[in-house]
Computed example of a mutant assay.
Amino acid sequence: MTGSDDNGARSRRGRQLAFIIAGTAVAYVGVQLIGAMNGWTTRTMGFFDLAALAVFGWALVSAYMIWRSGQNDS
């Protein structure tokens, strides 16, 4: 890949990651509101907390990998 193609691919991965993070945050808040309105148990709410935490952890690792791929090209 040439430099500009690689920058485009890295930018695309970054945008996808940003949408995943934003979507997870919105979904998490929505689930918290729905769960509070419907009286879901703490155990059920904890499951969604852990699921969101897993996505955010994966996003952190993915962001680091995107950043490192830019460092390797320099």
Rank of each mutant, 00 (worst) to 15 (best):
R43E: 15
R43P: 01
S4Y: 15
D5H: 13
D49R: 09
M1G: 15
S11W: 05
G14S: 06
N38Q: 14
Q16M: 04
M1W: 11
A27P: 01
G14D: 08
L53F: 11
A27D: 12
L17T: 06
G70D: 04
V55L: 10
N7G: 01
A52C: 14
F19Q: 09
V55H: 11
A25Q: 00
A27T: 10
L50N: 02
W67R: 07
D5S: 15
R12L: 03
V61A: 13
R10T: 00
T2K: 13
S62R: 09
T41I: 02
G70P: 00
G46R: 09
A9D: 06
A9K: 06
V61N: 07
F48A: 10
A25F: 00
V29R: 04
I20F: 08
M1E: 13
W58V: 13
A27I: 10
V61C: 09
S69Y: 03
R10Q: 01
T44C: 00
G46I: 02
V26E: 12
A59Y: 12
L17G: 04
A18E: 15
G30L: 10
F56H: 02
G57Q: 06
A59E: 04
G35F: 08
N7E: 15
A36Q: 06
V31W: 01
N38V: 12
A63D: 05
L50H: 00
G57Y: 05
T42W: 04
G8R: 13
G35C: 09
G14T: 04
D49S: 09
A18M: 12
A51H: 07
G39T: 05
A54W: 03
A52G: 10
W58D: 04
V26I: 13
A59S: 15
F47D: 07
A54V: 01
T44S: 12
A25M: 00
I20N: 10
G8H: 11
T2I: 12
M1K: 13
S69W: 05
R68Q: 13
M65G: 07
R12Q: 06
Y64I: 12
R13Y: 07
I66A: 03
T44W: 05
G30V: 01
A27V: 13
A63V: 01
F47K: 10
G39V: 01
T2N: 15
V26Y: 14
A54R: 00
R12N: 05
G39C: 08
T41C: 08
L50D: 03
R10K: 01
A22F: 07
G39N: 07
L17E: 07
I66W: 01
F47V: 11
Y28I: 11
I20T: 09
N72E: 14
N72W: 08
Y28S: 15
Q32P: 00
M1A: 13
